[in-house]
């Protein structure tokens, strides 16, 4: 791709692009500006796109992390836990299944792979209500497992790994490994897995993001606010603030700052892992 002739600067296109960038960034700018304000500064109106005179990030941050015994910090930890556990678990299962589907010809393969493809089209939220009913009978609702277990299911990850393993791992290499006396498991771990790395990172990121963003499932499953992920937690605060029963604390400032803080981990993750996930998307089954 690098030998492509470098196209000229195209000014109108870049101006157009500039407008789009502004559009995509305005909400972030608003949040950054307004999380520096206290309640009167926020509600008093005035300059909505610029800082108030008294910038109070530290005060607001301190309040955010100490309000209600540091509940917000717990929510961030919970989200992290759900994202990592759900992401790693789902990826592990998807990698194994994708490899299995791609490289072994076993009875029931076609049928089960067709089922997986069908599952791609089942809306995940349609599963929440019956899963809730099942979990409540098993006593699993309102535990961390109620959030982690359902996020292990990632049919798209299986599909992506299948396509990737099929195309990126030549059978000859596997056979060579087997001929050298490596067992199936060792062949998988030491030969196949390294070759699937870009796709693994992509699936890991996609499923971690899906868990991090999850709202409907934990909203239905959890009632203990100390188990909430940050999405449900901020939703709870919004409800309380709307009814305005937060006493002397005005929750609105905390909600805005909380929204800002909560996006930082994922933004960092995306920027630092950029090379990996972009590679996975471009090489993986999406072409």
């Amino acid at each position: 791709m690098s030998n492509r002739p470098r196209p000229q600067r195209n000014l109108p296109l870049q101006v157009f692009l500039g407008f789009l960038v502004v559009y995509f960034l305005v909400p972030f700018w608003w949040v950054i500006v307004n999380s520096s304000k206290d309640a009167p500064g926020l509600f008093g109106g005035g300059n909505t796109l610029w800082f108030a005179d008294n910038i109070d990030y530290l005060g607001n941050l301190q309040q955010l992390f100490t309000y209600d015994n540091g509940l917000y910090g717990r929510w961030i930890l919970n989200s992290t836990l759900y994202a990592i556990a759900g992401g790693v678990g789902a990826t592990l299962l998807a990698v194994m299944a994708g490899y299995g589907f791609a490289k072994y010809r076993f009875a029931g393969r076609r049928f089960s792979f067709a089922l997986v493809l069908g599952a791609l089209m089942v809306p995940a939220t349609a599963l929440v209500i019956p899963t809730f009913m099942m979990f409540s009978q098993l006593g699993l609702t309102n535990t961390i497992w109620a959030v982690i277990l359902p996020s292990l299911l990632n049919p798209f990850g299986v599909y992506l790994m299948h396509v990737y393993a099929r195309d990126a791992i030549p059978n000859e290499i596997l056979d060579a490994a087997r001929a050298d006396g490596a067992g199936e498991v060792r062949t998988f771990l030491q030969v196949a897995l390294p070759l699937m790395r870009p796709a693994v990172v992509t699936v890991l990121l996609l499923s971690a993001v899906a868990s991090w963003n999850n709202y409907f499932l934990p909203l239905a499953m959890l009632s203990d606010n100390r188990l909430f992920p940050v999405t449900v937690g901020l939703g709870l605060w919004q409800g309380i603030a709307s009814g305005n029963n937060a006493g002397t604390t005005s929750l609105w400032s905390l909600i805005i700052l909380g929204a800002l803080v909560s996006v930082i981990p994922l933004v960092i993750a995306f920027f630092t892992l950029q090379r990996h996930w972009r590679g996975g998307l471009s090489v993986g089954g999406l072409r």
Binding site: N69, L81, A85, V88, G139, T141, N142, T143, I144, D224
Partner: peptide, 28 residues
């Protein structure tokens, strides 16, 4: 992950049978 899980379930006070609001160790 494991330590986070352990941490979270530890805070639940081992209340594996009690689900929900009946679990008395999750108080504000």
């Amino acid at each position: 992950t494991a330590s986070l899980v352990a941490c979270s379930s530890g805070e639940q006070g081992g209340g594996t049978t009690a689900s929900g609001g009946n679990n008395a160790s999750n108080c504000t």
